[in-house]
Design a protein around this nucleic acid. Structure first.
Lengths: 187, 187
DNA sequence: GTTACCATGTAACGTGTTACATGATTCC
DNA sequence: GGAATCATGTAACACGTTACATGGTAAC
């Protein structure tokens, strides 16, 4: 259900209409997450009902109105709460990216801890894949079908390696963010 | 709807019960695709209705029966048809992996062409991301929030690079598979 | 006998997708 | 006035998830 948090983050960066969100989604969070306009309108209505956002309606009475949504304090609270909450699913990679963007707007929320947790999980996963590789695909002559099966496993190994390499480059940035924030508090 | 094709491939490798598929899914196609037992039972019933698979029921009358599914010729035809069909969605990466496993069982289905098509798409996507990086994150001093946003984009860039690198290593294997098959026909 | 695992299923719900429909504004 | 784009919505459906329920078999 964290499409809501993606939208909150996006709205904090800049209040927008649903249509505007759908367009901007393409070129930020949309790098890794696509949402149709239906989903966006549906979630905006839900969040408005929950008091996380409001729609400032402009335009004449009668016809359909253009609604510019902005985040209310309750929405910020929710985003902070969610940011601090450790991911339940082992595949919190997408969520983590939203937490990064949310931290860029709101300051530290706990993304560093989340990143460290995910790194442990993905290191374990990588190790598992490597064991399977050692067991099922010993060096030497492989038939073509075996090579194909090996490429499938290789995809898993490479994804994990690539993610971990990204994570190791990301960690210092999150630590700089923490240092920054504590520096702000001190001054 | 290609969970059906994943199941067909898995059943071709070895006829199984729904439960068995769910377990084996964890250690092959499950590298990149998880399916709950509900999904699996649902799809098995649908495929049985379509005549793609049959359940050999054993066990006594009355109680629930253990059903061992195996693929019928119509199921093989469907898998071949699907294998040759170019992916509609730009994100055919998961499907491609199933096509690789399907090729390992059935011989060439067209995965090489599919791989080449996807490579073109992903090269274009990578280029787009790099343009955005050049435009939005020029070299030099970046604030911490900017660095965080940059890490999100970096994830997109790295995913594409990693996938393309996998694809470049996979291509020769698919070509060896084609050569193998034409060799078989000649002999 | 009771625990663990094998095996299948129903029901309900939430999310994501597709098709279709409507109207406002802007530009030519 | 017509086309393109901005903007919002309803309805239906497919897919995925969770909760709950049932019963068989093997091991202790």
């Amino acid at each position: 259900m964290s499409i809501q948090h993606a939208l909150l983050t996006s709205l904090l960066e800049k209040p927008s209409t649903g249509y505007g969100l759908a367009s901007r989604f393409d070129r930020s969070i949309g790098y890794f997450w696509q949402a149709t306009h239906q989903q966006i309108y549906r979630e905006l209505r839900r969040m408005a009902a929950a008091g996380w956002v409001v729609a400032d309606e402009e335009g004449q009475d009668g016809g359909r109105k253009r609604k510019t949504y902005r985040v209310l304090p309750a929405g910020v609270d929710e985003l902070r709460r969610w940011g601090a909450e450790p991911a339940q699913t082992l595949d919190g990679r997408r969520e983590l990216l939203i937490k990064l963007r949310a931290e860029a707007v709101l300051g530290p929320l706990g993304a560093r801890d989340e990143l460290l947790r995910l790194m442990v999980c993905h290191e374990a996963q990588l190790e598992t894949y490597r064991q399977i590789e050692k067991r099922d695909f010993p060096d030497g002559a492989m038939t073509v079908p075996q090579q194909l099966q090996h490429r499938v496993l290789a995809m898993g190994i490479q994804s994990e390696e690539s993610w971990l390499s990204w994570a190791r480059e990301t960690l210092p940035v999150l630590e700089a963010a923490l240092a920054d924030a504590s520096g702000d508090r001190r001054s």
